[in-house]
Write a protein that binds this DNA or RNA. Structure first.
Lengths: 217, 217, 217, 217
DNA sequence: CATGAATGAGCGTTCATTCAT
DNA sequence: GATGAATGAACGCTCATTCAT
């Protein structure tokens, strides 16, 4: 891509040769190893109780090496959280292309959210423990991700209301927060107790409660 | 030493009466001032960014004084969180003596939970931001409180199921987590955005969703 | 590797002629580029605030390359200072072959010294800011150069005294230090304030003061 | 002084009892010990080669203690340099009250300047080695001090010119820089070689050269 | 010759905790 | 009981230097 530009700048090194992955870039193996190590260590001890040296050790690199790949300790955590949310949103976006029923869409979101536990337990712990921390640098950028998540749910709820599937006399915002909070709490509880569950089945149960309520008719 | 001063200050109250409240115990005024200061400061800057000296300054005492009342910095935070949960449970227990309808009981819990924001904003911030921290010393004992909260809700749900008010085909655990999570997330969102709301009205909305679901009949 | 490129650049000069200048020796182009870059960067930020990587970048070489041409970071600075003093002494020596009047000799030294600002401003800054640093490795070898400078002036003064042009009742050492210090301070002041001046005119003024004093007769 | 104000704020602690010297203030013994240690260590190894830990060790305190008395490592050096210049200016100001002849005034300045070597050799080294360093934070505030010194000399020179004692056809700025430079260089040379001299006699010699020139009549 | 990723010792600074007063 | 000066371990981060390629 943009071959003209590149060729102009580095005429002697054709794109065909190691065009991908700059040595210390996001794609390199060490980059990923550091990220994974950081997620593990921070999940175990918390951000502030995880010295950079502990992350480096877990990743099998020297302390200083971390700073070849990331600007700061903050940057490592930020990157890990960003990429998790990004993956979540990409997955949801992809599925929504073929899944149009609002009920099914909500259930899909619930399921993907709950699956995170199984996919990467450390990351799930980290998301539960650090994302809402009050340290301003984390809180502020994390908040942005949560807002985006809520917005996606709100849009689905609004569409469901327009289509007459959902009640119009409840606030889409309240519903979105309730749904996110319910799922997040189930996940959180599992994270803290070490319980495992079936994501699909649990998602179905949550949706049943959300859609029909718990009161007998 | 300095017996004159002491006598001057306490002259009106014989030692025999103050015996139950040790000078540095939970009842003393300074004890409470330190706790309040800690909650405020930690709510503003986070636990790890709140030096003990900042808490001492806010409380109007010397740094060292804190260690006459608490074993450690951890201990201060732990105590603050403990007492908040204790108060919550006492309040719920008290109300349940006269409030027996499971629906009303759940709504009462929701309302008290949501009210915490208005009652002590700093404490609400702290509960949202520090309680789930992964720093082991906080996470582990916090978990105990959350479990107790969930258990109270589960019992109410189970009673509702026995009384035929709630559906029997949903798990009381899932319902409890959903309810706690929904309320907590609404509170959390308000904390982060600085929004204010009407606790009673919001509690009613949440209960409406939880009891009746969002699906049109 | 990349033999084509190399051959293109050096095609006109057979190896037999380049034999005297080892590839990484003082005569090579890269050697000089590194020295120049070092002087510039150090003049801008100071020795201790100039990472080797910054010098390498400015010189357009890799960090490691510097160590092919110099033993250490110290060595780069030392070499730069050495070569500046050497050039100064060579220039003075050359001129003295045809310039024999002690007054004219002193004025020539003053002028060359003051000209350094115009010739290479970065080098002038570096000479004013780093040469007297207390970091032992710099201070000690710099001192040697200053001593040599003073000695040249002393010899001129002594010759002037022998020739009856200069008073015999003042110490040649004191005079030499006064002259060096006066010129150096004028240069230093210009370096720090960014002022520019006419080297010849300023040299004349300094010599006027030194030769005739400031007192009215 | 300002007893009303003080009494208002601290009514219970009469001024007569330890009215001077706040515990960590500039007057305390440890404050001075740290300053002295810093001057010594920095004079020996240079600012950037003097870890705070080395200064602390020399002062016989823990590393952290330094930060109870100074804001930063910079602050220690800055304070040392400031107080030296302040003392110099106070001394000159004081003497000028009774010493009015411009020639005598210049000679007094020269003498005080040269005496610094004997008074505190480490401080003299530090003044020679760090004051003109290029590290911006030092250079900029140091420059301010040098400018003030030069200004004092210029004023004396101008007064001498008005009184007809000094030639009017030489620039007061050039004369001031020459004089400062000459003295500073003599001092510097003594500092680097370890030579000792008689301040009064040397000051007299410098003034002789400056006033009468080195040329025979 | 040239590269630049990797190293790890060393830096300035913070802060929970202690203890002499 | 109360103080706050003092401690020193621990932190995040930098950078001179090496060495496999």
């Amino acid at each position: 891509m943009r071959p003209g530009l590149k060729r102009l700048a580095k005429k002697t090194r054709p794109d065909s040769i190691r065009a991908e992955v700059p040595a210390t870039g996001p794609g390199s193996e060490k980059y990923q190893r550091i990220l994974d190590a950081a997620v593990e260590v921070i999940a175990e001890h918390g951000y502030f109780s995880s010295p950079v040296s502990a992350i480096a050790k877990r990743a099998g690199v020297a302390d200083g090496t971390i700073y070849l790949y990331f600007k700061s300790k903050d940057d490592v955590l930020r990157t890990a959280i960003d990429s998790t949310f990004d993956k979540f949103h990409r997955q949801v976006e992809e599925e929504f292309r073929t899944l149009h029923d609002p009920r099914a869409q909500l259930e899909y979101i619930a399921q993907v959210h709950l699956e995170s536990h199984a996919v990467n337990r450390s990351m799930a712990v980290l998301m539960q423990t650090e994302v809402r921390q009050s340290a301003k640098f984390i809180a502020e950028f994390s908040h942005h991700h949560l807002v985006k998540y809520i917005q996606v749910v709100r849009e689905v709820v609004r569409r469901g209301q327009q289509e007459g599937i959902f009640r119009r006399d409840v606030s889409d915002g309240v519903v979105a927060h309730c749904m996110f909070g319910a799922i997040d709490e189930l996940l959180s509880s599992a994270v803290f107790t070490g319980r495992v569950y079936d994501s699909k089945a649990t998602a179905a149960q949550v949706m049943d409660v959300l859609l029909s309520g718990i009161q007998t008719k």
